[in-house]
Amino acid sequence: MSDLGLLVETARPLPQPRVITPGLTTGDKVFRFLAAAAAASVLAILGLVALFLVLEAEPALKVSGLKFLTTFEWNPDGTPAHFGIAALIYGTAMIAFIALVVALPVAVGSALFVNEYAPVRLGRPLVALLDLLAAVPSLIYGMWGLYYLQPHLQGTSRWLTDHLGFIPFFHTTRPVFGSSMFIAGIVVGLMVLPIVASVTREVLSQAPRGVCEAALALGGSRWGMIRSVILPFGRSGIVGAAMLGLGRALGETIAIALILAFNFKITTQILAPGGGSVAGLIANNFGEAGEAQRHALVAAGLALFVITLIVNTVARIIVNRTSKGKMED
């Protein structure tokens, strides 16, 4: 049988592939054009934004050169002009990190509860509620953080510095708490919680059911199943979800502008007033900025744009890989 097939193949030359016409109707063609235009416009907008940032940032970057990324003064209008965003990048990263420390355990916990423990009747509303958190405008979070959370976290901050002060991050020189990176980080953490939780939930729900059942059928508890099957399966997906949250946290503006007592220092004392972030800097200064200041701020924006683009892309790649690669158990 296979011998025969081989014979036929060698005897006859391979044909050219035929041209197949898709046979689209006029309606199809119009719709295809519109859809393609919509898709192209998304790319065009992204490109235009990048182009604008580069062009507008260029005068400032010419003045400061590489110092823009390594120094931490902010005086673009002075003569000579000095400005760099090192402290702000540090502050942005620190706040985003605190946000993740707050958001990730809650996200993983809620995802596991909804997927593995909650009865369907409780799980559905819980998911809806969690997603609703994402719909609350960040201004509201900022105000709530400033007027409610800040006074209520005084005690926590004091306790942390009293008992865990030996850890550099919890050390404070003066017992003044508030307007700190700690509080800003917590508020941003609450803001990014919904996205981290919903991606985590999605990724963990992809864990192969058959393998989960195997763990239970061996006499494992729910927790045993989670530890031996679900978490190892979802590990990289959780990392991806965290990075998506990180992408959001990096760009968060309002809460930080409201809460933080802005300065341009690099400090480990996250409980003390002070700190800064790139997005917060732009929000605070863009309105009354002069020519030189404006270029410098756009340059800061460009840095933020590049960082978030990288973080989000990496996160998407990780999330997609976990949810596709392990579909089949």
Binding site: P208, A215, L218, G220, S228, V229
Partner: peptide, 30 residues
């Protein structure tokens, strides 16, 4: 379930564990 074990239609070893770990996984779980 520990006393009344089950083998499923579709083979379902723990993919993140080695062959040896799979054999001992039930003991660890319980």
């Amino acid at each position: 379930r520990l006393r009344i074990g089950m083998v499923f239609q579709k083979p379902n070893p723990f993919p993140t564990m080695s062959i040896g770990e799979n054999v001992l996984s039930g003991l660890k779980l319980a």
